[in-house]
Each structure stands twice: as C-alpha cells, then as structure tokens.
C-alpha cells in the first residue's frame, strides 16, 4: 500500500462525501464560543432591562437546563465519532415513564426518577447495539430508533396528562442562598462532565472518535466504548427529561422530540467537531445557553413575529458560519 501523502489533492472530483467531510471538520475555538456567549448576554441585557431580575434569571436558567443536559449527551456521542438523532425521543420517553410512575405523589418520585434514568440507559444501550453490532450508520440508525422511542412514548402516555408533585416543580424554581436551583443543576451537569472527563471510558471515547483504528490497535475496546457513549448520552437525556418535567409539571408524549437538532447545533457552536475526537461538553453547555438566549433576543428585539423564526435561523447560521472562519477555528495540527 502506498497511502496518499498529506497535501496531495485527490485526482477524483470533489464529491458530496468530501464536502460532508469538510463540514464535519469544522470546529469552533473555545474563544469564539465564549465570545459569542458574551455578545449574546450583552445584547440580551441591553434589550431586556430586567434581565438580572430574580424571576428573569430563574426562568432563563430553568429554560436552559433541558437543552444543556441533552447537549452534553449529544457531545459524548459525537466525540465517540457517532451522532444520536434519537436523543429528543429518549427525552420524551423518559419523561412520560417518569410522570406515569410518579403519578403526582412525592413518595413515588425516587422510584420514578430511577426508572426514568433506566429508560435513558436502555435506549442508549439499544442505540449502541444497533450502531455497533448491526453496523448501521449512526445517523440512519438513530433516526430510525427515534421513531421507536417516540412510538413507545405514545404507548406509555397516549395523551398529555399526569402530574408531577408540586414540591418537584416549585423546588426547581427555588433558590438556594440566592442561587437559582436551575443554575445549580447546570453547574452539577458541568461537574458531572468534568468528573466523567477524568474517567477512563471518556478517554477511550476521545480515542475511538479521533482514530478508531489506532484505538483498536492500542487495545481500546472500541465496540464497548461506542456503546458506552450512547448509554451515557441516554442518561443525560433522562436528566433532560427530569428538567422538562420540572418545567412543565406534567407529561406530554411529544415534548422532547424537537430538542434533537438543537442539541446538535449546540454541540457545533460549542466547539466539538462532528467528526469526533475533538471538543468537550463545557462548550456544548455554553452553546445551548447561546441558542436559548438567541431566541430571547429575537423576541425582545421586537422582530415581527412572522420574521422571528427566520431571524432565529439566521443567527444560528451566522454562529455556524463564524465557526467556519479559519481564524476562529481551533488550530489544526499539520
């Protein structure tokens, strides 16, 4: 074999796969993500004078948590070289199972939350097996399983209903020593990630996503690592589901599905390359917050409601385009 030397152009014409490859390579630098966050906060403060009021802060953080959790989960799968388009459906399924088991009683909560977490683990395991054992493309496989999970959700809870105990919903809106509980939840998720980062399995996830063949030759259990990534992601989907239940106080069999694509956007804005192996979840957390604040800004900027969705989309594209500017990208090795 004579591997093509780096720096030579392929004689074959540019293909779609090639451009997808380029897209997957895009990686925002940490500086760019933080800069975006600062700008977004500044603009939001300028447009919303009561941004720092207790209610505004609490409600903002409460809004962030579900997206933050799912974005962290997505990051882990993306780092492993995959993608999980079923995370939103997992959120839905975990939330309806939890709300059904809780049935409005505080006493049922521990069991229900455990079961909800179990749902995330099971969904992740299922995804992992489908991707690894059946060797399906992650993007296709998880797209397919998303229908399985949302279908199951509809079986568990055919129509909106069920209630969470008021202690659960009001506790979520409370503050501890002036710090909103939702903010504490975000910090806890971040701490969870930082702990995870120091775990051997996460190192293996980076290795597999960065160069699966090298990882295999280096005795990394590649298949098991991939599956684990989906399982961990499923657990974060469950956390996202709990936050949603705290937000809504009730179950809804369609609730999480739209979070999926936002989670991917948060991952990219947060500086994790979709090709895997580079980045981290702290960036995705900031990315999720940026995305949520952007829709606030569009609202407070009095963009006519007809144009609001367009404006929202444009801002996200702008953020992704910024990611494409070489100067803002993380320096790639030679």
């Amino acid at each position: 074999m004579n591997p093509a030397p780096p720096g030579t152009r392929e004689p074959a014409p540019a293909t779609l796969a090639h451009w997808w490859g380029r897209l997957r390579d895009i990686q925002v630098s940490g500086t760019a993500t933080v800069a975006m966050l600062v700008v977004v906060i500044a603009v939001n403060v300028a447009l919303q004078p009561n941004f720092f009021d207790q209610y505004a802060l609490t409600s903002n953080f409460a809004t962030f948590v579900p997206l933050v959790a799912i974005a962290v989960g997505q990051t882990i799968v993306v780092l492993s070289g995959g993608i999980d388009l079923s995370l939103g459906a997992q959120v839905t399924l975990a939330s309806v199972v939890t709300v059904q088991l809780t049935d409005g009683e505080l006493g049922n909560l521990p069991l229900a939350l455990t079961a909800g977490l179990g749902v995330g683990v099971a969904c992740g395991l299922f995804n992992g097996l489908v991707v690894v054992v059946a060797r399906l493309q992650p993007i296709v496989a998880t797209f397919a399983t998303s229908f399985v999970f949302s279908g199951l959700a509809l079986v568990v809870l055919p129509r909106p209903g069920g209630t969470m105990p008021s202690e659960f919903t009001s506790g979520y809106r409370d503050s501890v020593l002036g710090v909103p509980v939702a903010l504490l939840a975000i910090l806890a998720i971040a701490a969870g990630w930082l702990l995870l980062r120091r775990h051997r399995v996460t190192r293996h996830i980076y290795a597999v996503g960065g160069n699966a063949e090298a990882a295999f030759a280096s005795l990394v259990p590649v298949a098991r690592t991939r599956i684990t990534a989906y399982v961990i992601a499923g657990m974060f989907a469950s956390v996202s589901a709990f936050a949603i239940l705290a937000n809504t106080g009730a179950g809804d069999p369609f609730i999480g599905n739209e979070l999926t694509l936002t989670s991917v956007a948060a991952v990219v804005i947060g500086g994790t390359a979709l090709r895997g192996g580079r980045g981290g979840a702290i960036g995705s957390i900031l990315g999720a917050i940026i995305l949520a604040l952007v829709s606030n800004i569009v609202f407070f900027a009095d963009v006519p409601s007809t144009y609001r969705q367009l404006a929202n989309g444009l801002v996200v594209i702008l953020a992704l385009a910024l990611a494409g500017i070489p100067a803002l990208q993380k320096r790639r090795s030679a």
């Binding site: 980076y206 290795a207 160069n211 063949e213 090298a214 030759a217 192996g277």
Partner: peptide
C-alpha cells in the same frame, strides 16, 4: 508492534 502507519490518536 510498531508500524509505519501510525496508530496514534492525533488529538490526544
């Protein structure tokens, strides 16, 4: 084993 074709992970 050590190969010419490396089995190192660039990002680590």
């Amino acid at each position: 084993a050590v190969y010419q074709q490396l089995s190192v992970v660039d990002d680590l």
